[in-house]
């Protein structure tokens, strides 16, 4: 594996995480509990789409096969997608969405903070944009998780249920492979061990403020980054890619 191939893998993974999160957030459009939150969720979805576009565009350039960001988003199948599994899980309710977004946005805030000093200039530039967005996503969801967790009996129960269900998918965010190791040595990728310490601190502080307990089950799922996905990704892609699959290169 060359450094360029490793960077392709890294950018695709970050891009896929953004794209699949965007899809799930956009599903709330017109369905959020209040109009203002509808705007907030779709704003976040748009931030993620923009981030996916930049990362997949760069990945396409690195691959050198003339692929655009659209080719990568709409012409790859499940095994070629490398997003973490937590991104593709369907939303049970608003508490689930807020807890997931807290877990992923906190991770992304520390990840992109670190990547602003990447030795790869394009990665550093994308990170400089993403870190501002992630900081807001983290603040917004932190407040909501505390409000819901420390709210009514029902909102507390739903928040606890969401964390119990999502927790077994959090370890995968910190997985590394050979590509990561090569890029870390070159100063291009971020050190996930350092990110994990900051992430745990923020999540635990938020969980304590929300009066939510740590799930006891320590089993952790894995596979997304290697292309082994849950059944849900197939459903996402079949809808998201329908147009490009049915009418390749359609223009309007």
């Amino acid at each position: 594996m060359t450094e360029q191939q490793a960077l392709y893998k890294y950018c695709t993974q970050l891009g896929d995480n953004a794209l699949i999160q965007s899809y799930r957030l956009a599903e709330w459009c017109s369905r959020a509990p209040i109009l203002e939150e509808d705007l907030a969720l779709t704003n976040m979805a748009l931030d993620m789409t923009g981030r996916a576009q930049l990362l997949l565009q760069y990945a396409g350039q690195l691959a050198g096969k003339g692929q655009t960001e659209d080719d990568l988003a709409y012409r790859r199948s499940e095994p070629e997608y490398s997003n973490s599994l937590i991104m593709e899980l369907p939303d049970d309710d608003f508490a689930f969405t807020m807890v997931r977004q807290l877990l992923t946005s906190t991770f992304e805030y520390f990840l992109y903070s670190a990547l602003t000093s990447s030795t790869d200039k394009t990665v550093a530039a994308i990170a400089a944009k993403a870190v501002k967005e992630a900081k807001y996503h983290m603040a917004h969801t932190t407040d909501w998780v505390i409000r819901l967790g420390d709210g009514t009996d029902e909102s507390s129960r739903r928040t606890q249920q969401a964390l119990n269900k999502l927790w077994p998918y959090t370890e995968e965010l910190f997985e590394t492979d050979d590509a990561h190791k090569m890029l870390l040595a070159a100063g291009i990728a971020a050190d996930v061990n350092k990110i994990k310490a900051s992430w745990s601190e923020h999540i635990n502080a938020t969980r304590t403020a929300a009066k939510i307990t740590m799930p006891s089950d320590d089993y952790q799922h894995s596979g997304g980054t290697r292309g082994i996905h849950t059944e849900y990704l197939g459903h996402i892609l079949s809808e998201m890619q329908y147009l490009q699959r049915a009418y390749p290169d359609a223009k309007w």
């Binding site: 209040i34 109009l35 203002e36 939150e37 705007l39 907030a40 704003n43 603040a139 917004h140 407040d143 409000r147």
Partner: peptide, 17 residues
């Protein structure tokens, strides 16, 4: 105008709207 239950939510909803 916007709807919110607390100051933080009010600022965020104003920002998003």
């Amino acid at each position: 105008m916007i709807h919110a239950t607390d100051k933080e939510m009010a600022l965020q909803n104003a920002r998003d709207t």
